[in-house]
Write a protein that binds this DNA or RNA. Sequence first.
DNA 1: AAGTGTCTCAACCGCAGCCGC
DNA 2: CGCGGCTGCGGTTGAGACACT
Length: 226
Amino acid sequence: MEQNELRKGPWTDQEDMILINFVHLFGHRRWDYIAKVSGLNRTGKSCRLRWVNYLHPGLKRGKMTPQEERLVLELHAKWGNRWSRIARKLPGRTDNEIKNYWRTHIRKKAQEKKKPMSRTGKVSFYDTGGPNTAASEGEKSQEFEDEKGYSMDDIWKDIDMSEEKMIKPLTANYCDQDCCNIFCHSMEKDISWDSLWKMEEDESKMFLPFNQSISYFEYGTSYLTG
DNA sequence: AAGTGTCTCAACCGCAGCCGC
DNA sequence: CGCGGCTGCGGTTGAGACACT
């Protein structure tokens, strides 16, 4: 009877399914409520994190593209460790993902880059927390453009194009990966996420009994289990 | 093949800001 | 206006995967 004991650690497939279902019903802004009514014994924070970083259907998976990497570099130079803000400029990427990416890939590059720089006494902005401590922004941007021959205009063009490509066939892309059948089905039927979130308004009417929720999700289990 | 080191990424924690009462 | 609850953000951790010896 330890029902009140909060669960921690990795999420199970079943928990994922339950969470998706409840987010579907109540929207993605009422985490505490979802945590309570879902019976997951997780905190609202935990539910939100799981959704945002893993279950959200718009998420891209896999390696960062060179364009994304450049954008991360440029935005980090501009904003510092404002990961969520940076993430908003990279559709399908989460703040957590970018944060991790920065720590691993970029830091690694920084170390490599640092070696020759240490001889010149120049400080790499990779090592900084961003604009406050880094070299002047102009210098950094110039550094990128000189080094890569790739301007921010080019980057934004790429992003615009990739967004166009990405957003429209998103369902297809997403379905190619081990993705959520349910949401793909929803999207195929032109149900946008905005409209799903608006379902919140009718939440009280739409509350499904738990058993019904599960059976609904048996339909789309494969994407979660792989 | 086994042991060890390194890397990756999901998840947790603490804090700050926002909002309703 | 102050308080309490909730959400979101950034930093950190740790388990599992992978690479190397």
